[in-house]
């Protein structure tokens, strides 16, 4: 399915570092376990390269942190939003689907964007059809499509998909 790509040493090294850090997080730091951790991380790198070949994303740390901050605050707002609607005397809802054009090509980047988007207040992407994400919104009177487009801009900046 996926054509064999030339081995990307840089990506592999980056992922190895990531997974080894993850190992330390999970297992804690014990000197005698380090070889096992390295082997496990190497295995994880192999799996991740096999299932998710390195793309052309370029990471921009500053924007990435900004994105993470936006995302955390958004998910906080999303939780409050749902809680407010759920606990209102009569559930405050005007649900419906909104079609939001999406520029990201199909692939891991788009899926990741939609994943983040699904944690935004009041919206839930339910797949892409014909170049548009079909977003289910709790309240269609809100500017759902505009917010979606703005978020896509932020995401593209953070991952260099411009």
């Amino acid at each position: 399915m996926i054509p064999p790509a030339p081995f990307d040493t840089k990506a592999a090294a980056a992922r190895l570092a990531f997974f080894f850090a993850l190992w330390l997080t999970i297992a804690g730091w014990t000197a005698k376990d380090v070889p096992v951790g390295l082997a496990a991380a190497a295995g994880a790198v192999w799996i991740s390269l096999k299932f998710l070949p390195p793309g052309d994303a370029r990471f921009r740390p500053v924007q990435l942190i900004a994105l993470a901050a936006r995302f955390l605050s958004a998910s906080l707002i999303a939780g409050f939003d749902v809680a407010r609607r759920a606990l209102a005397k009569r559930p405050d809802l005007d649900p419906g689907f909104v079609s939001c054009p999406i520029g990201l090509p199909s692939g891991a980047a788009r899926d990741a964007f939609l994943l983040l988007q699904s944690l935004q207040p009041g919206t839930l992407p339910t797949g892409v059809e014909g170049g548009s994400a079909l977003v289910h919104a709790l309240d269609v009177s809100q500017p759902v499509a505009a917010a979606f487009a703005a978020e896509e801009g932020h995401f593209r900046k953070a991952f260099g998909h411009e």
Partner: peptide, 11 residues
């Protein structure tokens, strides 16, 4: 999940 889970499994 697959690579992270594999790591956790080995751990």
């Amino acid at each position: 999940l697959a690579p992270i889970g594999a790591l956790i499994g080995v751990h």
